[in-house]
Design a protein around this nucleic acid. Structure first.
Lengths: 138, 138
DNA sequence: ATGCAACTGACAGATCGCTATCATTAGAGG
DNA sequence: CCTCTAATGATAGCGATCTGTCAGTTGCAT
């Protein structure tokens, strides 16, 4: 049996909603906090289990970034890259991809893909040098 | 005293040599194996300690890549990017940087830097579909 | 050559990200 | 409404990475 019966639990829906609303890659911990706004007693184990099953279903895509634990975003988006805020640690999506101009690898190397990360301060952090916080979305 | 006396031990020199000879980013474990060719009884704790101090001295730069533990390379090189072999897991340096064409971040975002990773198979792994191994440099 | 403290190696232990276990809860087909 | 069992929440445990401890070693100033 490749696919056991899948139940549509409130927890799983809360997790899906969290990813849809965030519209940026979330770590399991971020997904937990976000989904807990929909289902308060949600546990971290359930988040890991559902991320796993949403990956298997192809509903989520993994987004790994240096030095951090893997994050996940809703699958099916066009090729894009990410921005990582060094201050708040959140990750954002960027528009297009400059993949036309990639460095040339040495002879014999086969390039299968690429990943571009921009680093810096997000709008909220860049503007909050003295602590101007708009919303606590964390 | 910001700088206690630094001794130039054989172990530290072996670690420096390992990075110089490798000419690519090494993980602590890779650095251990490589440096043990210069100093057999080297321990992993010493590698971590010296990587830390070489970072503080500015002799090493950290190179983090998604999903892997941080690697390190000799500092002071020109801006460049990296290639990660999906087969053998080793990391290589690439030539130029196409930084002229970066995706534009949303309004208010401050870009401080970028990191580009190419993925695929390195020359050795791409050519060894049936196991043509040249040298065991691991 | 001598002495001392920086350094080392071995390994215990902290930390992190994730998985396994298990009693309990709750989808969903009948 | 009942039943069956997938799914959950709590938490113990695991592997990987890195740090702390400490007795013993060794670079280096004298």
């Amino acid at each position: 049996m490749p696919h056991p019966i899948r139940r549509n639990t409130r927890q799983k829906q809360a997790i899906r909603d969290a990813f849809i609303e965030a519209d940026r890659p979330l770590s399991p911990e971020e997904a937990l906090s976000a989904a807990q706004r929909h289902y308060e007693t949600l546990g971290i184990a359930t988040v890991y289990r559902n991320i796993k099953s949403l990956l298997a279903e192809g509903w989520l895509d993994p987004v790994s970034l240096p030095g951090q634990s893997t994050r996940y975003e809703v699958a099916g988006k066009a090729h894009h890259h990410h921005f990582h805020c060094r201050k708040c640690g959140r990750m954002f999506e960027l528009g297009g991809c400059a993949s036309t101009v990639l460095p040339k690898p040495p002879r014999g190397f086969q390039v299968a893909g690429h990943e571009l990360m921009l680093y810096g301060n997000c709008a909220r952090c860049a503007g909050s040098s003295s602590g101007v916080r708009r919303r606590a979305s964390r």
